[in-house]
């Protein structure tokens, strides 16, 4: 009897190896944790340099974004990310990479139609739904007068 789509779907699932979850989690923890520790190191450094609290809060992500952009530009970041997975995607480094990589990739189509149009092709949904959920939570706080 011919294999049905349902049976085939089971066969395909069985034949396809799963992602190495524990290995991925381990490296995500180590490398993601390292990036967060770097953030802490930067905080101490900026505080030592005499920046006030607000300035420190801005300077840390700016520095991490700059480092990521540089590593993306020289073609190293994607190699680290292949091992790190969520460890580099979740911190602000993932966001920076998702903006810089299409900006570089679509340079061939020109500064406006290429880099300009495509720059937020990956980060766009994060911005859209980040902003939308911020508005939603803002409304909840406003209506229920939580502050």
């Amino acid at each position: 009897m011919a294999t049905t789509n349902k049976e085939y779907s089971k066969m395909a699932k069985k034949a396809s190896p799963p992602s190495p979850k524990f290995k991925n989690m381990f490296f995500a923890f180590i490398i993601g944790g390292f990036i967060c520790c770097m953030g802490e190191v930067l905080r101490f450094a900026f505080e030592k340099a005499g920046l006030n609290e607000l300035e420190v809060k801005n300077a840390i992500p700016v520095t991490l974004i700059a480092i990521t952009a540089f590593l993306t530009g020289i073609g190293v970041f994607d190699k680290i990310a292949r091992v790190a997975g969520a460890g580099t995607i979740v911190p602000i480094t993932g966001f920076a990479n998702s903006v810089v990589s299409p900006a570089m990739e679509f340079k061939a189509e020109g500064k406006i139609m290429g880099t300009g149009v495509q720059m937020f092709t990956i980060a766009g949904p994060v911005i859209v739904y980040g902003t939308a959920s911020a508005v939603l939570y803002g409304l909840i706080i406003y209506i229920f007068k939580l502050y």
Binding site: S16, P17, P18, S19, P20, N24, T72, G73, G75, F77, D78, I80, A81, R82, A84, G85, T88, I89, G94, N97, S98, V100, S101, P102, M104, E105, F106, I122
Partner: peptide
């Protein structure tokens, strides 16, 4: 890659399949 998937320098993991 650039037509079907992600930019080359995008840091993601490829699934085993």
């Amino acid at each position: 890659e650039r037509q079907f998937r992600y930019p080359l320098e995008y840091g993601g993991q490829r699934p085993p399949a």
